[in-house]
Structure formats: C-alpha cells, structure tokens
Design a protein around this nucleic acid. Sequence first.
DNA 1: ATGACCTAACTTTTAGGA
Length: 264
Amino acid sequence: MILSSWNINSVRIREELILRFINKVKPNILFLQEIKCEEGQFPYLFFENLNYDCFVIGQKARNGVAIAVKKDLKINICENINKKINADFQARFIMINLVDHDIDLCNVYVPNGNPVTDDKKFEYKVEWLKNLKCLLESYIFGEKKLILGGDFNVLENFKDVKNFNEWKNDALGHKKIVSIFREIIGLGMFNVIRKFFLPGEKFSFWDYQKAAWERNDGLLIDHFLVTPNLIDKINKFEICSNFRGLPKPSDHVPIWMKIDQISE
DNA sequence: ATGACCTAACTTTTAGGA
C-alpha cells in the first residue's frame, strides 16, 4: 500500500503534474493540500478516470484539502471537524477511515501563521495546533491506528532548513510553534522520515522566490506521522524532489511511503 | 546576489502564501 501527500498549490492547474506523479508512484491514497477551490470546482472526473474516489473539503480560492482513494478500498468518512479545530471556518482538515484495516487517515494543512507580529494570524496557528494535539491524545493510549499527513508549516528540527537562525522569528521556526509540534511528536506519534533520513538530508518545499530551487534553499515541512503500532510496517519513504524542477511546479513536492502487511 | 514568484479573483491590482 502506497500513501502519498502533496501540497499542490491549486489542484485545477496541476492535473498534468498529478497524472505524472500517479503514473510514476501509483499511490493507493493521495492527500492533497491547498487545492484552492470549492468542492463544486474540484476535478472529480480527472480522478474518476484514474480509478480514484475523492473526498473533498474545499473553500473558495484558498486552502482546501482532499483525499483521493483507489476505488477498491473501502472508506468511511469521519466527521467534518474543521469548525471544531478552526475558530472560523478554514478548510484545513479532512479525516477518513480505511475500513478493512481500521486505520484513520488524517490530512492536514496547518495555518502558515505569518507574520508573527499579527496576533490574529499567529495565535490562530497556535490554537489550531493545540486543537490538533487535543484530537491526537485519544490515539496515544488506545489501540487505534492513525496516519496523519500533510503540510505542517513547522520546522521540527533546526536542520530542516539551511539557516535556522533566519527562521526563529518566522511562524515556521518560532519557538512556540516548534514546541507544540514537538509536543505532538511527544504524545507518541512517529515522524516517518526520521526512520529513513537524517535531518538536513531532505527538503519538501522550495520558495518560488530568490531562486530557492536552483540554490537548493528548501524547507522540510511536509510529513507523515504515524501511531507507534504502524512504524514497523513502513519500509520505504521518499520525497519526489525532481517534481520541483518540472514546468509549472507546485512550490511543494510529493512525499510518499510504502506500508507492508496491508493488502493492496 | 542583500536575488528576479505564483495563484485566484466580480482581475488590469490585491491578498495570501512560506
């Protein structure tokens, strides 16, 4: 079973790239963030033709998350808790249950939070992450399985960017934000990339500005976190960095992992 | 190089992103 995640920065103008990724990696499941459209504008037919069902929580022009699932997988849709996790509605959270394996799949687009000096934006991110942490607490002492993936907009480790000092006053590297993210890890969630790569080896985002890609000045902010009962089943994790160098790229690249002992 | 961007929208500028 292949699970993938991609901040696509508009799903509607990225069909060609998505097709390329699906043909290359053949994911059973694809998490998308920043689809930047309402449900009614989502390209359901494009995914239908590739044999995927889509579960979408959209929003006009901004944010928006979706999960594409191969049609042979049985799914239950979990409650839409965006309003619980967001003070006001922002489409940043979608959760489904893989029925045959009883695994919850949670796709998140964590708020950016900049500028730090804007209390409204920064505190919104703080509250959002705290709410996410609350939600996760129920998984830690239970037997439930959870895969939490997406764009976390957090630099977990000071090696996840070239010069962390430049990011300490940014909402991605701010002490308050990094601390909450580490508290989430501290609950027992395992960050899958750390099983396969050392901090500093991989990035998942390169800004469109300042020739960030050409200078390999990237960030690692896209992740899969899993409950401990899944760690030993994950035998591969990759970041498709080359997708940043293709025409009309998203500023993020896809990440994916392979889970063993779970039927296709 | 102290750096030149991209997307959606009641579009010809602006807000938001990271």
